[in-house]
Design a protein around this nucleic acid. Sequence first.
DNA 1: CCAAGTCTTAACCATACAGTTAAAGCGTAC
DNA 2: GTACGCTTTAACTGTATGGTTAAGACTTGG
Lengths: 208, 208
Amino acid sequence: MPTPPSELDESQTRQRILDAAHRVFLTRGTAAARTQHIADEAGVNKALIHYYYGTKSALADAVFAHHVRTFLPRLFAILGDPDRYLEDKVHDVVREQMDFHCAHPYVAGYLAAELHAEPERLTRLVGAHGGPPLDVLARQLAVDAEAGLIRPISVQQFVATLIGAVVIPFVMRPIMTLFLGLEGERMQEFLAERRRVLPAFILAGLRP
Amino acid sequence: MPTPPSELDESQTRQRILDAAHRVFLTRGTAAARTQHIADEAGVNKALIHYYYGTKSALADAVFAHHVRTFLPRLFAILGDPDRYLEDKVHDVVREQMDFHCAHPYVAGYLAAELHAEPERLTRLVGAHGGPPLDVLARQLAVDAEAGLIRPISVQQFVATLIGAVVIPFVMRPIMTLFLGLEGERMQEFLAERRRVLPAFILAGLRP
DNA sequence: CCAAGTCTTAACCATACAGTTAAAGCGTAC
DNA sequence: GTACGCTTTAACTGTATGGTTAAGACTTGG
C-alpha cells in the first residue's frame, strides 16, 4: 500500500514531473529539451524521472499526445455541435481559441514544431481514425448554401481558413511582431482587435 | 589563385554543402539535425564542412536567414506594389504563395519550428528594422474603405489573415491530413481547390 | 616539376546527454 | 520499532556529437 512520506504523495510527484515536462517541452521543443531541465523544474532528480516514466521519449510522447488530444477536440466540440448556428460557431470558435492561445501562447508553436520534426508521431499516437466528426458542420454548410445564406464551400476549406486565421499570430509570433510592428503592447492590442474583427471577416467571407 | 582540382571547384563544393545543409535543416530542424547527415548528403566529410563554414550553428544561421530573407520579401513585393489593385494583390499573393509552398513544402513548417525553438534568432539575424514597407498597402486599404469598396480593416489584420489562410495547410499538414481526411491525393485536390476558393473568400471578407 | 589550393583520411578530444545502479535517508502505517 | 515505499545522492556507463588536427592525396597553373 502507498505510503506518503511527506505532504507530496506519489501521484502528486508524478504530476509535478509531468507538469515540468510540459513546461520544458513546450518552450524548448522535444529535440532541444534536456531531462535535467525537467528534473530541475520539477524539483526532483533524473533518477526519479526514470523511476516514474522510463525514457525521455515516453514522457515527450505523453506531453505531445495530451496537447493533440485537447487542442482539436476543443475546436471540434464547437464546430460539431448540432445545436448551434453556423454564425454562432464562428463567433464561439474565435473567442474560445483566442482565449486559449492567449492563456497558453506556446501550444500552437509547439504543435507546429513537433509536427514538423516528426510528422508520423501524430498517427502513431492518436491512431489513424479520421478524427472527430465533421459531418454535422458539412451538412450545415450545405444546407445554408442551398438556402442561399452563404456561398457553397467545403468543410475542409472552411475549417482550414478558420484555424489558420486564428492560429497564425501564435505560430509565427516573432515574424508578426517584427514585420507587422507588433512589439509588446501593440501585440496585445492587435489580439484584442482580432477577437472583434475576425468573426465578422470570416462570416463576410461566407456571404453569397 | 584558386585551383580547381576536379570538375567541382571550390565554390561548387561550398554550394553543395550549403544545399545539403538546406535539405537536412529543413526536414529535421536545426536541433535534431546532425552535421554528419549534412556531410553525407553533400558527399563530403565533416572536416570539409568545418573547413568552409566553421560551426554547425553558423551554417544553421545561414540557412535560417536565407529563408527568412526570401519568404517574406516575396510576399511584400506583391503587397507593397504601388501599381497593383488590392483585388489583384490578393489573387497574386495566393497564387504565388501556393506555388511556392507546393514546390517547397517544408519551408513553412521549418520556419514555424525554428521561430518557436529560438524566437530571438529572428531579430539577431535580420536586425530590428521594421521590415518591408506596409504603408502602400495600408493607404490602399484606407482609400478603398473611404470609397466604400471595402470595410475598414487594419493592415496587420489583413496581412495576418491572408498569410494564415495560405500557410496553414503547410504548417500543420499532418493535422490537416488526419483530421480533415486529406490523405495523399485528397490533399492535392484540396490545395488545387484552395487556390481557386481562397481569393474569393478573402475578397468577400473585405466587402462592405 | 613545383607550388598552391582543394579535399580526404583517420584519427582524436571534450562534452553533453540519456539511461542505470546501489545505497541510504526518511516518513508513515502497522 | 520495523517493514514498506517514496525519494535522494552520487556515482557510473555508453554513446552521440561537435569540433579539431595532421598528414597526405589529388589536380591544376605556371
